[in-house]
Design a protein around this nucleic acid. Sequence first.
RNA 1: GGAGAGGUGGCCGAGUGGUUUAAGGCGGCGGUCUUGAAAACCGCUGUGGGGGAUAACCUCACCGGGGGUUCAAAUCCCUCCCUCUCCGCCA
Length: 424
Amino acid sequence: MLDIKRVRENPEKVKEALEKRGYQIDFDEFLFLERERLSLLRDIEQKRAVRNSVSQEIARLKKENMQRERTEALIAEMRNLGDEIASIEQRLREIEERVQNFMLLLPNIPHQTVPIGKDDSENVEIRRWGELPKFDFEPLNHWDIGEILGIIDFERAGKIAGSRFAIMRGQGARLERALINFMLDLHSGKGYLEIFPPILVNRASMTATGQLPKFEEDLFRTEAPEFYLIPTAEVPVTNIHREEILSEDDLPIYYASYTPCFRREAGSHGKDVRGLIRQHQFNKVELVKFVKPEDSYNELESLTRDAEEVLQKLGLPYRVVALCTGDLGFASAKTYDIEVWLPGQGRYREISSCSNFEDFQARRANIRFRRRDKKGTEFVHTLNGSGLAIGRTLVAILENYQQKDGSVIVPEALRPYMGIEVIR
RNA sequence: GGAGAGGUGGCCGAGUGGUUUAAGGCGGCGGUCUUGAAAACCGCUGUGGGGGAUAACCUCACCGGGGGUUCAAAUCCCUCCCUCUCCGCCA
């Protein structure tokens, strides 16, 4: 959420910033409601102040048991004032709710360094790493490799669950598990505390990180009791510190968390219908940071490097792309996508998304910190990035390390986890 | 699922309708004393909103969440959430 004071005092600047994202937002109604809200607030506070002091007066009179008539008159007066206050409260509640709803639907303001653009075609490549593999045969798609090796079964997964599900079997299942362990070990060795959180969460948690109220249709939900299945570990892990005031000495906080993730993929019919790229259920190791505001852009760079290191250790070529304003996620102020090379598709595909949310999530989640030498509190900055998506990493390994005979070489870094050098 | 107990400020803990707009303690900060430290003593000590010049200061709200009764609610009522104990069931 944006700072409401900032929005009502600089609506033109906010409007302009959000237009770069492609949002056309009408602030007139909001500004009107906000003026009304503040005027009602002043009115009601003044009336409550009167009631407070008169009530004390009544208490005093009753105790002394004097001036009974005057006491009765005051009580009657306060009864009327109470009715007035109640009716103002009613109007105030309605207006506050509308103002709140408006604020919850405003996306974050892009950082100055974010390239201006309308969609993903205008994202800017920052750097490349690794050499693209050369094949003396036509490289296969991972779903063909998976079928040949008998390590991925899409057809039976369709029977037991539906489309966009997969069964990993044998060395496929082993590879999935190896990647999770490899990544967690790597990150926890670099100062990230390992977390295994709930993967069903409540509505408040989803609202705090920005999935709700705007993206309800992307989420799986249970009812009675109502829970949401997490679309990323970002949700439960960021919410660890919801409604907390941290001390400056606690920061920065780094967490690494493996979880399954669940996405409805509504509106992506016909996209990536084959293979592991787009599944309703997938595994991911997520990195989450809570940092001081002045550090957050350096922290975004190091977070991205930490995610890149996974690909480097696996020997998978990739590039880093800065998302342009039009492609930026709802809650993000700046995002780098890491895209891995997939020979089967002959293109780079997103495997990690590293974002700085600044105080956008912290404000929704009410995560603050206190500086040692200053009074009051400030919102922390939150960041997160995949480090990495397990399924897509597995895809990249199958496609980049495939050999003519259909076997797949296990990257050296994974051999301790796999116990073999080649999947055949 | 059944029965019971409870949720108060950074922490502990009192408080069943009106000098409690939260006692007391611990912790923390400042001071006195001291060569220094400790002890002792004195003072201060939350969050958010509104007003005011982003000052002093004034004011409203906040005792798990929400709603209600009342001139007045931490205190009474309703409802939801959570924690703990015992029983049952269970990976």
